[in-house]
């Protein structure tokens, strides 16, 4: 059994989770400070990929990255790089689709943070960045870790946008989800079932981790 789809899906999910971790935290932290109108608009924009069909996300990405489109053509002409149909093309798709999960979980965690703790830190002379890294983040770490794990789980299973922007090339762009579809389509049920069970096992394990992290805590002033 060729394990390339698993390896590829894991690396795409891992890279996307790292990107989404930083961007998601930054977005959820700064949106809390934004003026109300901007906040409303950005919140819709950041959450939209969660409710849009992944094929729509894939289509929009192709509009930007396709070889005849603005960004895609630029990279092709300047660096001779095809932005689509590479194994890493899926990272664009997965990152966008998964971003709302990280953003919303992190935002929830930040909103539950007791601002009095930050006030206390400031009266003690602590800089805002010290407060962010040593008080705010640790206080919200459970929510943030849960967000990353959930993003990773969703990233592993992304199909729609991935299939549009990276396609299915065995040994190159194949992932678990695209492999299952191809195997079923070509009548290779025995192998498709194997991949299905691998997928279920990984997802179940990840959800166990999320549940463990989201257990209600006894502590009052942390989130």
């Amino acid at each position: 059994m060729d394990l390339y789809p698993l390896f590829n899906a894991l690396r795409i999910a891992a890279i996307s989770s790292v990107i989404v971790f930083f961007v998601g935290i930054a977005a959820s932290y700064y949106i809390a400070k934004a003026p109300r109108i901007i906040k409303g608009i950005l919140d819709v924009l950041f959450t939209l990929p969660l409710v849009l069909p992944p094929t729509v996300v894939g289509y929009l990405l192709l509009l930007a990255l396709g070889p005849k489109r603005a960004i895609g053509r630029f990279f092709l002409e300047a660096f001779n790089i095809h932005m689509t149909m590479q194994w890493w093309s899926a990272i664009f798709a997965v990152t966008v689709v998964v971003f709302p999960l990280m953003y919303r979980t992190a935002r929830g965690a930040f909103e539950r943070f007791d601002e009095t703790l930050a006030d206390a830190g400031r009266t003690l002379g602590l800089s805002n960045s010290y407060i962010f890294w040593h008080i705010r983040l640790p206080s919200c770490k459970q929510g943030i870790i849960a967000g990353v794990v959930l993003s990773f789980a969703r990233a592993l299973g992304e199909y729609g946008a991935t299939s549009m922007i990276a396609g299915y090339t065995p040994g190159k762009t194949a992932t678990v989800s695209t492999a299952v579809y191809q195997l079923w389509r070509t009548g290779n049920d025995a192998l498709a079932v194997k991949w299905v069970f691998i997928n279920i096992a990984i997802s179940a394990a990840v959800l166990l981790v999320v549940n463990y992290l989201e257990r209600p805590q006894r502590r009052r002033s942390s989130c």
């Binding site: 007791d114 009095t116 006030d119 206390a120 400031r122 009266t123 800089s127 040593h134 206080s139 002033s221």
Partner: peptide, 21 residues
């Protein structure tokens, strides 16, 4: 002046101790 430069010690009602320290 920002709170950091005021040198005003504030005992909060619920004490506001940092829970992770």
């Amino acid at each position: 002046l920002p709170p950091q430069k005021r040198r005003v010690g504030y005992l909060f009602q619920e004490y506001a101790l940092f829970p992770d320290m």
